[in-house]
Every structure is written in structure tokens, then in C-alpha cells.
């Protein structure tokens, strides 16, 4: 019989931020699809029109609230990555995926369907994870910037007033106008959808293969490691 060691993996703050970000992404994606293509229409009962109903306005309100939650969750997560007392993992994010040797070892494991952890890797993230999470932060920042450009387009109803518009105007120019900013915003949403799909699968695969409790670790904070036999 093998015994498993309990290992504290995720701090309370990181677990909280993880689930806040998860909910925000879910809400933002759904409402984002509606804003791009309004696919339902709520009739006022007894009429064929919307009287005292504001489906688009409400959906946009929800989108913007979730967006603010997402912005601050990302800011806090990046702050924690650098300044957490317990677990400052910025090196894991930024440099782990530059290690070629670990890439070879990890890809060998994944491509030959070994669903368990890579031997000899004692770090928090393997290079695939590291790259995915690094990309997640980069795309989050891009999504926040493009979102803010679109959101502040009507601020005070005067262009050039909104300081956000002024500061981010080079970005607008870089993407080639507001129409393209919108397309970039929409495309990055697909990154998040794909990220969530792959992330959930990998977590389950590791949980099943390694039996390390990685699925429940985001609730409990503990992962399990195989001890010595």
C-alpha cells in the first residue's frame, strides 16, 4: 500500500481569485456573445414589443460589472505573483516555459498518453502549464485593454475627453481603428474558451492519472503526492 503525502498547494487568496475569475469569464463570454449578436428578445407579456424591458442594456450592465470584477481579479493575481508572502510564483509564470529540457520531458509524457506527472519535475507548474498561464495573463491584459477602449468610447460622449481613450489611442491605431479593436476583443474571447476547455481536461486527466487530487485542490488547497513505498 502506497501512502500519500498531503501538500499545501494553493493559498486561500489564489483559490478565491481562481473561482472569481472563472465566474467572471463565464459571464463575460455569454454576455459578450449576446452583445455581438443579440440572440434573444424578451416580449412584454401580452404585447409583441419590449415595454419597460431593457435586455440589451441589462446584458451590457452585467458585462461591464463582470469586466470590472475580472480586471481587479487579474490585477490582484499578478500582484500576488510578485508580492505574495507565501507563494510568489512570478518566476514560474515567466521563465519556467523557457526550459527546453523540461519541455522535452513533458511533451514525451503527454504525447505518449502517460497521464501522470512527469518524473523529476518538482516545480509547481510544468512548462506547458507555465506557458498556458503566462499566455492567459498576456491575453487577459490585451482583453482588458481592448475592452476598455470599447467601453470608454462614449465616456462623456466626447472623444478625446476620456483620458483612457487618449492613453490607449496608440493601441487603437495599432489595431487599425475601432472596428478592428472589436474583432481583436472577440478573437481573444475564443482564446479563453479554448483555454477553459483544455485547462479543465488537463486537470481531470492529472487527477485521474496521478490520483493527486488536483481537481479538488482548487477547493481544499491540498494536493497529494506519492510518498515512499
Amino acid at each position: 500500500m502506497r501512502c500519500y503525502k498531503r501538500k499545501y498547494e494553493w493559498t486561500v487568496a489564489i483559490r478565491l481569485l481562481h473561482w472569481i475569475t472563472f465566474i467572471a469569464i463565464g459571464v463575460l463570454t455569454f454576455t459578450g456573445f449576446y452583445i455581438a449578436w443579440p440572440f434573444w428578445f424578451v416580449h412584454t407579456p401580452g404585447t409583441k414589443e419590449a415595454y419597460n424591458m431593457f435586455s440589451m442594456a441589462n446584458v451590457r450592465l452585467v458585462h461591464f460589472i463582470a469586466a470590472y470584477v475580472f480586471i481587479f481579479a487579474i490585477i490582484l493575481r499578478v500582484y500576488l505573483a510578485f508580492a505574495s508572502w507565501i507563494d510568489a510564483d512570478w518566476k514560474e509564470f515567466m521563465f519556467r516555459w523557457l526550459n527546453v529540457r523540461e519541455w522535452v520531458a513533458t511533451l514525451k509524457n503527454y504525447l505518449t498518453f502517460k497521464p501522470y506527472g512527469v518524473k523529476g519535475l518538482k516545480t509547481k507548474y510544468n512548462p506547458v502549464q507555465s506557458l498556458a498561464y503566462f499566455a492567459f495573463i498576456v491575453f487577459s491584459v490585451l482583453q482588458i485593454i481592448t475592452g476598455l477602449i470599447l467601453y470608454t468610447m462614449n465616456e462623456n460622449s466626447i472623444r478625446g475627453v476620456a483620458w483612457v481613450q487618449k492613453v490607449l489611442f496608440p493601441v487603437t491605431e495599432l489595431f487599425g481603428g475601432y472596428a478592428d479593436v472589436r474583432i481583436v476583443h472577440h478573437l481573444i474571447m475564443w482564446f479563453f474558451i479554448i483555454f477553459v476547455m483544455a485547462h479543465v481536461y488537463m486537470v481531470i486527466a492529472h487527477d485521474v492519472g496521478e490520483k493527486n487530487g488536483s481537481l479538488s485542490s482548487m477547493f481544499t488547497g491540498f494536493k497529494y503526492e506519492k510518498g515512499d513505498e
Binding site: 498518453f113 502517460k114 497521464p115 472577440h186 478573437l187 475564443w190 476547455m197 483544455a198 486527466a205
Partner: peptide, 26 residues
């Protein structure tokens, strides 16, 4: 953008399927 996104999402789903089946077989 939705065509590109759905294509990539489909590719991801296919990769997940292949990996899951491969893992089970192994």
C-alpha cells in the same frame, strides 16, 4: 472571428478526445 474560434475550439476538443482515448487505452 467566430469561424476561426469555432475551428480552434473544435481542434482543441478533438485533441482532448484523442488524448483521453489514448490515455484510457494505455
Amino acid at each position: 472571428s467566430d469561424e476561426i474560434g469555432s475551428f480552434l475550439a473544435g481542434a482543441t476538443a478533438a485533441a482532448i478526445g484523442v488524448h483521453a482515448i489514448g490515455s484510457v487505452i494505455r
